[in-house]
């Protein structure tokens, strides 16, 4: 059914912290690792060891440079996966009903056995969150690790998306945005969580936390600085003579 649900019981999604992301791409690898051997068709690679390698990924990390009015430029790493939009254009364009948004938790999924591989949903997504697998010829996208988060065979601490579990910097957080008291709702409220391309009207669920301003060195001296002045002074008397003599040797 590619009509969108009016509302969903829960709104599961991610908070991605652009302040702490170190750009290590660990989430890219763990996402590919988990999803290539679980839900749906594997995430294939073409010419992985050849001259022109490429492949299917559900999560990719871009890097941007922001140049403030003054001071040094700042490098910001920018992980991007499906934002599980509330008004998801990728769902309504699908002619077969293969793309759908779940009523119970808001996760946007593709039923691969119904997908005819027309690619229209990838055209409709403004974020580039959908990729057609070149081997299986079906549409692949982030599943919010639906096969982990409810998986009772996994230890409790592993029942979060692979990318969240893996991130060494703790830059990815998973939770329910429908609950104002959840970890992700509070994080987003406290840190000014941003929606990407709000003018596209997709109402993304995922939120991005803006990078904090960086320290500036050399602009103002701390009031305690004088106390930190070097204590070693130029030697006088005998020590000064010794110093000079040794210097000449």
């Amino acid at each position: 059914m590619t009509e969108l649900p009016k509302s969903t019981d829960r709104k599961l999604g991610l908070v991605i912290d652009l302040d702490t992301c170190v750009g290590c791409h660990a989430c890219v690898i763990s996402c590919k690792g988990w999803n290539t051997e679980n839900y749906g068709a594997p995430l294939s690679d073409q010419e992985p060891y050849g001259a022109d390698p490429s492949g299917t990924f559900l999560n990719r990390v871009h890097s941007y440079e922001v140049q403030p009015e003054s001071g040094a430029a700042q490098l910001i790493h920018f992980p991007k996966s499906c934002l599980h939009c509330e008004d998801a254009p990728c769902v309504t364009v699908c002619p077969t009903g293969a793309s759908y948004k779940r009523v119970e938790d808001g996760i946007v999924l593709v039923n691969e056995s119904d997908c005819i591989g027309c690619g229209l949903c990838a055209w409709a997504c403004p974020y580039g969150a959908r990729e057609m697998d070149q081997a299986a010829k079906v549409m692949k996208k982030c599943t919010l690790c639906v096969d982990r988060i409810y998986n009772e065979n996994l230890p409790e601490e592993d029942r979060v998306p692979a990318c969240v579990r893996t991130c060494p910097a703790g830059a990815r957080h998973f939770g329910d945005f429908a609950d104002p008291e959840s970890n992700v709702s509070r994080l987003s409220a406290e840190r000014g969580g941003m929606a990407l391309m709000p003018e596209q009207g997709t109402l993304p669920v995922n939120r991005y936390l803006p990078p904090r301003p960086k320290d500036r060195i050399g602009e103002e001296i701390d009031v305690l600085a004088p106390l930190l002045a070097p204590v070693a002074e130029e030697p006088t008397g005998f020590l000064a003579w010794l110093d000079r003599t040794l210097e000449k040797l």
Binding site: V28, H62, Q67, Q74, P211
Partner: peptide, 18 residues
Amino acid sequence: TATGLGAPGRIRAFEPPH
């Protein structure tokens, strides 16, 4: 608007994901 990084200054794509 795509990145939400408009405010602190001029932004440019530095590195693609792959």
